[in-house]
Design a protein around this nucleic acid. Structure first.
Length: 287
DNA sequence: CCCCAGGTCAATT
DNA sequence: AATTGACATGGG
């Protein structure tokens, strides 16, 4: 990867293992939307980003070098060598096919509190509606970010969520879980720091101590909010695709988790994203 | 009318 | 320890 400063933009050249549609359409983040041909725009960590692909390079529009280094370098997990990880995951026909389709996937390192709330909302829900609910939440009580004539909204702070009426989100029974999580973080400001400092198993126990955060949601938070790549979230789609591709019979979530831990090890979470992306693109072939 | 969606909880066996 | 129904809402 070569980083070039150009007027108000950052340009990335010689990119491998990086494709916008793979990154933003694999169900890991909910706040980026397609705003053009090979262009996505969204808000993360309080910053607006418009990123596009042109020919062999990627452009981060209106981005300073400081912002790139302090925000986006970590966000896009640029320090990790996905080529190496793909090589170590590769071996069976299923994984090779999944990697071939989602070759440009990267695990985004998202803001922890946003990830907690987002995946609480995700439970027993579909991706378009998850996006709508989160966007409505940000508009309801997130800090305004004004860029020229455009208005964007940061993901709200815990206190802001506690101080508004979230019933307008139509998130249903998840309201009480959202409020409880916001209250937990608001009343114990070191809660997030403890999570950041903890190992995977300790962090998982802490997360699951919150009402409405169970096995799967905590695994997603571990992976997308804490960078724990040994976490392997199993939702209905992962359940189906693992049964079909690897087990070739009905099996339990626990069996799948144990299998993944052995087969994919410390890169389970990245393997999971390749498989999940593959599953989303082959819904009609799954039963 | 039905069933399902990046599930979790509590009651019941 | 494993199984089951309720939980809100919107879309097919």
């Amino acid at each position: 990867m070569v980083i070039i400063k150009n007027n108000n933009d950052i340009i990335l050249k010689d990119m491998r293992d990086f494709e916008l549609s793979h990154i933003f359409d694999c169900g890991q983040c909910f706040r980026f939307r397609k705003t053009g041909e090979d262009e996505y725009t969204g808000v993360a960590k309080g910053h607006v980003l418009r990123i596009s692909k042109s020919e062999d390079s990627f452009v981060l529009h209106n981005t300073t070098e400081d912002d790139f280094n302090s925000v986006w370098l970590d966000y896009f997990d640029f320090k990790r060598d996905y080529g190496f990880i793909k090589a170590s995951l590769s071996g069976d026909e299923c994984m090779d096919k999944a990697i071939e389709e989602g070759f440009g996937i990267r695990i985004l390192r998202q803001e922890l509190f946003e990830t907690i709330i987002s995946f609480i909302i995700s439970q027993s829900n579909n991706i378009p509606r998850i996006k709508t609910i989160i966007e409505t939440l940000c508009r309801l009580c997130g800090k305004k970010i004004i860029l020229g004539t455009e208005v964007y909204y940061a993901f709200p702070e815990p206190e802001a969520i506690l101080n508004c009426d979230i019933s307008v989100l139509h998130a249903g029974y998840r309201d009480k879980y959202i409020l409880n999580a916001a209250r937990t973080v608001y009343e114990n400001p070191s809660f997030l720091d403890e999570l950041e400092a903890a190992d995977t198993q300790t962090a998982k126990k802490l997360l699951m101590s919150m009402n409405g955060v169970g096995n799967k949601v905590s695994d997603c938070i571990l992976l997308f909010g804490l960078g724990k790549t040994d976490s392997f979230p199993v939702d209905v789609w992962m359940h189906r695709i693992m049964e079909q591709l690897y087990f070739r019979k009905k099996c339990s979530i626990q069996e799948i988790s144990e299998y993944a831990a052995v087969k994919f090890g410390e890169y389970s979470g990245i393997a999971q994203q390749y498989l999940f992306y593959y599953a989303l693109n082959h819904k009609n072939e799954l039963n």
